[in-house]
Structure formats: C-alpha cells, structure tokens
C-alpha cells in the first residue's frame, strides 16, 4: 500500500493549493510558482540533469483534488512550472493523483515501482519519461515545506502582499504543511529519515 493518510487534514482541501489556488486564477498563482520553482532549482542544482536522456520533457501533473493542473517542463536547461486550468496537449505523460500522494512522490517518500503497485496514481503517456522524472526527483531530496518556507522567508512580505494573505493565513499554511508532513511521515516514523542529498 501507499503511505496511507488515515486522518483527514483539518482544512479540506488542504495545503498550499487548497489555501492559495482556490481564490486565485492560475495566472495570479504563476508569480508565486515561478518564485518557488526558482528556489527549487537553486536548492537542487542539476535536478533535471537526469532527464537529459529524454527528448520530450513536458509533464502534466494533475492533482485530482484541486481545480487546476500543473505543467512541468523539466528541460534541464530551462525548467518551468506552470499552473493551468486545463490539460496540456503537448505533455509527454500525465501523472494524476491526490495532491498528498503527488507530494510524497516529489519528496521521494514513495518509489518508482510502488507507484504502479497501487491505483492511487495513474500514469498516461510515456512511462519511461515518468520513471526518469521519478528517479530525478528521488535523488534531489526535495522537501516541499522547507523549500516553501525558504520562499516565504525572504519573500514573505511581497508574497503575502501579492496573495493578499495575512499573518493568520501564513501561520495556518505553516501549520498545515507541518500537519501534512506529519501525516505523510507517519507510516515511516519508525525508521530513520533518509538524509537530504
């Protein structure tokens, strides 16, 4: 089984996207995504270098519990993450599943094979590209909360202004991420956490 999330997080739909995306159109979300993605790239140089074996690098990431999709261009030279309302035609593959599971995948908490053993995630299109992407992010040691707080740290004020979010929301986001992290790590709390790359 996948790491199961026995408890339903207090805010539903939870998480940054639940908090941020609902009131925002993808267009308004984009500057934040760009900032996050820039930080991601800075924290994990060479993240997409492992994808240099691919000709096509555009993935559609579809969190089924959110009203939007993410389009990831994992071009090692010019990576970009875009939010959109609808599917992209040019995606080499689509990865579809609950946001929590997608984040598990991003943070390397579930592995490439396990992805297929359960029906929680569905894969369409080029399976090889998906496997390559999974291998790349698994090695990178991404930590969504840490990376996001990095973003919300130095960029906190302008970001909050841009989003129109107040302190309360920021703190709830922080709590939510913390809670999410606890949920996601719970099945593995008995083992030492893998070191960050």
């Amino acid at each position: 089984m996948f790491p199961t999330h026995g408890k339903t997080p207090p805010l539903s739909p939870v998480l940054l996207a639940g908090l941020l995306a609902r009131p925002l159109s993808p267009r308004l979300l984009q500057p934040a995504l760009d900032a996050i993605f820039a930080i991601l790239n800075r924290s994990h140089p060479g993240l997409f270098e492992r994808l240099s074996c691919l000709n096509e690098t555009v993935f559609l990431i579809d969190p089924i519990d959110l009203p939007l999709v993410f389009i990831l261009d994992a071009d090692p030279e010019h990576p970009r993450l875009t939010a959109a309302r609808e599917d992209a035609d040019r995606a080499v593959a689509t990865i579809r599943g609950p946001l929590l599971t997608l984040i598990d995948l991003l943070e390397g908490r579930i592995d490439g094979d396990a992805m297929f053993f359960s029906r929680t995630l569905s894969i369409e299109g080029d399976t090889e590209a998906v496997v390559a992407l999974r291998n790349a992010v698994d090695d990178a040691g991404i930590d969504v909360k840490r990376d996001l707080l990095d973003f919300l740290g130095p960029f906190a004020m302008p970001a909050r202004h841009a989003f129109g979010l107040g302190e309360r929301l920021y703190s709830r986001l922080n709590d939510d991420l913390e809670f999410l992290k606890d949920c996601a790590l719970a099945p593995q709390s008995r083992i030492p956490k893998a070191p960050e790359a």
């Binding site: 390397g108 908490r109 579930i110 592995d111 490439g112 094979d113 396990a114 496997v131 999974r134 291998n135 698994d138 090695d139 593995q188 083992i191 030492p192 956490k193 893998a194």
Partner: peptide, 15 residues
C-alpha cells in the same frame, strides 16, 4: 534487490 527503487524503499528495507 532494487537499484531502480527510491531512497524511501532503500532506507526501509535496509533498516
């Protein structure tokens, strides 16, 4: 076995 599998799998099985 499992060079193709993620670090989560490795950590868990090896432990």
């Amino acid at each position: 076995e499992g060079r193709q599998r993620g670090k989560a799998y490795i950590a868990k099985v090896v432990t």
